[in-house]
């Protein structure tokens, strides 16, 4: 695929300038550009297995909230998690996060094969008959992935929730404070590699990204592109 620059696309990651500085090679993906790999990135797959941080903000995601949301999602053929605080992988690898009884977030798969976020956004309409309302999560959240065997220990430097792998199963969600800002943390292992998605305030992305990189240093973790994460699955 041809490389591109984020500013040529209407949808830009909140931190595209930081990624560009770090040597990111961007590839076009729908209406956005995603950091696929980094110049001088070395063996990014090995890094991702150890401790990797990737920006997934350009990937599709959406959200719905309101009393009738679970029912509506079911009519849209979405397999919703049984309980709040759980995420459920769909047959096309999209992930559905249930944040509360009536609030759900739907995020794309890493290969962006899933059409689910786009389909739901297209299907949804504000209706007087149904209490299901759109939450523009592609804009309100930045989306990072933290992968690798050191991910739990590194997150313990910035988060007070017990995320040890035997206590916090794949698919569990913690809505909590991460480096002093609110965040949704969901464990979503990539193949056999433990991994966490972080969804946090998009306006705080410029703050959070370097903060996480600083926390990663002692574990010799680093930035990885989407290609490295794809290789893990």
């Amino acid at each position: 695929m041809a490389t591109t620059q984020p500013a040529q696309h209407p949808r830009r990651s909140m931190i595209y300038r930081i990624l560009r500085e770090a040597g990111a090679e961007f590839e076009a993906l729908a209406d956005a550009a995603v950091a696929m790999r980094y110049a001088d990135g070395g063996d990014e797959v090995a890094l991702a297995r150890r401790l990797g941080l990737a920006d997934l903000s350009p990937l599709a995601r959406t959200g719905f909230k309101g009393r009738d949301t679970p029912d509506w999602l079911v009519t849209q053929q979405v397999a919703i998690p049984d309980e709040p605080g759980q995420a459920r992988r769909q047959s096309d690898d999209a992930l559905v996060l249930r944040l509360s009884a009536d609030e759900h977030v739907i995020v794309s798969d890493l290969r962006t094969r899933s059409e689910l976020p786009a389909t739901l956004d297209a299907e949804w309409q504000l209706s007087a008959e149904r209490m299901c309302y759109h939450m523009p999560r592609a804009d309100s959240y930045c989306w990072f992935a933290i992968s690798g065997e050191c991910a739990t220990e590194m997150l313990a430097k910035v988060c007070g929730v017990d995320l040890r792998l035997d206590k916090f199963d794949d698919g569990r969600i913690a809505q909590t404070s991460l480096a002093r800002i609110n965040a949704v943390i969901v464990r979503n292992d990539l193949g056999t590699t433990p991994a966490f998605y972080v969804l946090a305030d998009s306006a705080s992305a410029d703050y959070l990204w370097p903060c996480l990189i600083d926390a990663m240093k002692e574990f010799e973790g680093g930035i990885v592109g989407l290609a490295a994460l794809r290789a893990l699955v």
Partner: peptide, 14 residues
């Protein structure tokens, strides 16, 4: 400890 000063930027910040 390490200092954390959360700071928010608008998308027009730059």
């Amino acid at each position: 400890g390490r200092s954390f000063y959360p700071e928010r930027h608008s998308s027009m910040h730059h």
